[in-house]
Design a protein around this nucleic acid. Structure first.
Length: 285
DNA sequence: ATTTCATCCTGGAGGC
DNA sequence: TGCCTCCAGGATGAAA
């Protein structure tokens, strides 16, 4: 479910609710959602961290990293939400929703619950997370390489991505090159830049490359401002819906009239994902 | 190097 | 009502 704006919305809620607090308990209902070297000893290690203060929450692309204070030797919890993963902050006595896999009890007597119906999401616990090089730290845990965050990339880095024979849509979805874009925001950014999703990167004109750079940043920031996009599942940490759906121009609008020129929006499959575009506004190069 | 495909899962929508 | 197929905000590894 969550792409960069949705994960950022969750991160902001978690920062509000977790920083300065600590965990006071842990319950694991579905151990399969736990990965990494400490997988088998997850509860044991987590218990060492009870009472330790949470000092920072970072987001890298679609990943979240929760960091404890230095007294706990830079312990960290890394979360990759997958398609339907999410967090809920709630009173401890609230009945457990379906697909609640981990319950973290907080020192202020609230619950932080990790839910994920499709179970594509994963969490990693690290005893000593190298905060000086988080990308290498995550890679050494067996997570895939991660490119720069789409809101933190330099323009020159982005423009270098076009030196490729790849189809632009699959390039934008490749988290090793650029972290944070998923299917919604890749389609929306390409529409806003007037680029056909199946265009070959190298053949895209300089002017359009620069436009895509600007539009990705504009759309991601706008989506964050609206709390992300909710289709069915997405909720932020407070259970609230995202409001960006009404600003979408092409995503999931197959056969509907383009909001700019009234031409019917088309759907094609690229890299195994549906891609939505306006055949009139987005010319193939 | 890059694309396609299958896989991991549950659930909602729509056809019959 | 049920049964079926298709589809879904993602990531990964194998095969082509």
């Amino acid at each position: 479910m969550p792409e960069l704006p949705e994960v950022e919305s969750i991160a902001r809620g978690l920062r509000q609710e977790l920083i300065g607090f600590s965990f006071s308990g842990i319950g694991v209902n579905k151990p399969v959602v736990i990965s990494g070297p400490l997988r088998r000893k997850f509860k044991e290690f987590f218990n060492h961290l009870l009472g330790r203060k949470i000092i920072r929450i970072e987001r890298y692309g679609k990943r979240l990293v929760i960091l404890w204070d230095k007294n706990s030797s830079n312990a960290a919890l890394i979360i990759q939400l997958g398609m339907t993963g999410g967090f809920t902050i709630c009173p401890p006595d609230l009945p457990r929703a379906r697909h609640t896999h981990i319950i973290f009890r907080l020192s202020n007597n609230k619950d932080l619950r990790f839910t994920d119906p499709r179970r594509f999401g994963r969490v990693w616990l690290v005893e000593n997370f190298n905060t000086a090089d988080p990308y290498a730290a995550m890679e050494s845990l067996g997570l895939g390489r991660l490119g720069p965050d789409a809101l933190n990339m330099t323009k020159s880095y982005f423009l270098r991505l076009f030196d490729s024979e790849r189809i632009i849509k699959s390039l934008l979805l490749d988290q090793q090159r650029l972290a944070g874009l998923g299917n919604i925001y890749a389609d929306e950014s390409l529409f806003a830049a007037g680029i056909h999703p199946a265009a070959i990167a190298r053949r895209i004109k300089t002017q359009q490359r620069e436009k895509l750079y600007r539009q990705i940043r504009r759309i991601l920031r706008l989506a964050i401002a609206h709390g992300g996009t909710t289709f069915s599942d997405f909720r932020n940490a407070y259970g609230e819906l995202g409001n960006f759906k009404k600003y979408l121009y092409v995503y999931q609008r197959t056969r509907l009239p383009c909001r700019r020129c009234r031409t019917a929006i088309q759907r094609i499959v690229i890299a195994g994902r549906s891609s939505h575009f306006c055949p009139s506004c987005q010319e193939k190069q």
